[in-house]
């Protein structure tokens, strides 16, 4: 199963993400966002970051999770390849992010948006989300 794929969009970045569980879906969404930033990593590990997020529903939780990760990525100049969920429900999560320090980014993401946001589970039990980033 693919983690994510880039879809066609006129002005911005649209990705489709897959996961066998909602947790995996969130993790793969973070991978998709991180790859779009085209980071040039340093050979230094980033200090693990713990985040707790409460949202109104599952789509908002995904947007808020990615927005918080984007904030940490940009402010600390780090890229996170590992996510460990300590708690996870449809409107609340606690997670630990770990990865590498980054020298520079090749692309800027302004924000994670609700535009065309779609999360669903197909008949085979695969979770799928479409997310659009303002770049």
């Amino acid at each position: 199963m693919k983690e994510y794929k880039i879809l066609e969009h006129k002005a911005d970045l649209k990705i489709q993400v897959f996961g066998r569980t909602k947790e995996e879906l969130f993790k793969n969404a973070l991978s998709g966002m991180a790859s779009a930033l085209r980071a040039e990593p340093e050979n230094e590990k980033a200090k693990a970051k713990r985040i707790t997020i409460k949202s109104v529903d599952l789509p908002a939780l995904l947007v808020d999770f990615l927005s918080e990760a984007l904030y940490l990525i940009q402010v600390h100049k780090e890229i996170y390849s590992e996510v460990r969920f300590i708690e996870f429900s449809d409107n609340e999560l606690t997670a630990e992010l770990s990865g590498q320090k980054v020298e520079r980014f090749g692309e800027d993401i302004k924000a994670v948006t609700y535009h065309d946001l779609d999360i669903c589970e197909n008949k085979k039990g695969i979770w799928k989300a479409t997310i659009l980033f303002d770049i």
Binding site: V56, A60, S67, Y71, K110, A111, V112, Y114
Partner: peptide
């Protein structure tokens, strides 16, 4: 830049609720 982007993200969240 990022400051303005974050203000928009924050207030879309606040207003949605």
């Amino acid at each position: 830049r990022g400051l303005g982007h974050q203000i928009a993200t924050d207030y879309i969240r606040i207003m949605m609720r």
